[in-house]
């Protein structure tokens, strides 16, 4: 008897789980808020300002999604997650989407049962060394002490790279980026390794950034992108095509400044018309309003504007577009057509 009750309860819980997972889009609409998982703080990608407003490159994806679904870029609850809690937060339904510079890997996609909806930043692991060390290539780092965050993919990449090149290193384990900066500046390690975007942000804070160089070798692929739970493809589509809309908008020359004007009437370019809802019914197919993309682009601009404002060359972080340029400019950004 007891067992039956227990199994029954489990079944109900399982059904409830299935039911809840089936309609994230409806849940979000009913709630009126998008729950978005972000980091507890990463320069340029997500950080709260003095008023508690979140800003950053990953945050912009959340805002665009909220705007596309609810028509209001402010209708987001930001849930700070750490590297340890991020996946459970998403799996348990605490957040609807995780936009937290998470590398797209096979095991996370398949084994942890998440769906990566695209890539919003192509990163890679690099090395920073003091200029005084006189090193111009990572291959010359034989026997170097390396500051490295423990428990991350960077640690494994480092081991792979040094083994492949048959050189040795001595790891100096650190816990956070701030600790890494301090250790590196204090000379506790010859080189600091982490994602190239992180290195650029770190270097920008130094008293004399010119005394330090980021070596040309990028030793890993780190495609960072937003992710959602397996099993709710409608929701995944909304997330995927919101991101694509931002990328396509840049390609098509739609910016936050001219989007309202372009959306006011159908123009000559049919793809722009379809994207902005003046032609066809793409929004309806997604379960959104016809002006979903207009709202998403108005929230923070197209991909290029978001990039320039948060991490681009005119910010203290000063990242160049590199791999993250449009495919027409020799980069990897390539949105499937809006048709």
């Amino acid at each position: 008897m007891k067992k039956t009750v227990f199994l029954g309860a489990l079944t109900v819980a399982g059904l409830a789980a299935g039911a809840a997972a089936a309609g994230t889009l409806d849940d979000v609409k009913a709630r009126g808020k998008l729950n978005c998982g972000v980091t507890t703080g990463l320069v340029g990608f997500a950080a709260p300002d003095a008023n508690g407003e979140w800003h950053g490159f990953d945050v912009a994806v959340c805002r665009a999604m909220a705007a596309a679904i609810l028509g209001d870029p402010k209708a987001v609850e930001f849930v700070p997650t750490t590297g340890k809690t991020r996946f459970t937060a998403l799996a348990s339904g605490e957040v609807d989407v995780l936009a937290r510079n998470t590398t797209w890997t096979l095991s996370r996609d398949v084994d942890l049962k998440f769906t990566f909806v695209g890539v919003n930043y192509y990163d890679g692991q690099g090395f920073m060394v003091p200029k005084a060390l006189g090193v111009s290539s990572a291959k010359e780092l034989d026997g170097a002490t390396v500051c490295i965050q423990t428990g991350t993919t960077t640690e494994l990449n480092l081991a792979d790279y040094f083994r492949k090149n048959n050189i040795s290193y001595e790891p100096v384990p650190i816990e956070t980026n701030a600790e890494g900066q301090q250790q590196y500046l204090a000379g506790a390690c010859d080189t600091y390794t982490t994602d190239a975007s992180g290195l650029a942000a770190t270097r920008a804070t130094f008293e004399n950034p010119a005394d330090h160089v980021v070596l040309p070798e990028i030793v890993s692929k780190e495609p960072l992108g937003p992710l959602v739970r397996h099993g709710d493809d409608e929701w995944g589509d909304v997330a995927r095509w919101t991101l694509n809309a931002l990328i396509a908008a840049e390609e098509l020359g739609i910016t936050s400044a001219n989007v309202k004007e372009m959306a006011s009437a159908a123009g000559n370019n049919p793809e722009i018309n379809r994207l902005l809802g003046t032609e066809g019914n793409l929004g309806e197919m997604l379960g959104l309003s016809a002006d979903w993309a207009v709202n998403a682009i108005s929230a923070g601009g197209n991909y290029g504007e978001i990039f320039a404002r948060n991490i681009g060359e005119n910010t203290p972080i000063g990242l160049s577009r590199g791999l993250n340029a449009q495919w027409t400019d020799g980069g990897l950004l390539y949105s499937p057509p809006f048709r």
Binding site: T39, T40, V43, A47, P80, T85, A178
Partner: peptide, 18 residues
Amino acid sequence: IIGLLDPLGLSNSIRADA
């Protein structure tokens, strides 16, 4: 460590401001 922003958690967020 579990993502609540107590003073130490906030110190990290503050540092994340450019």
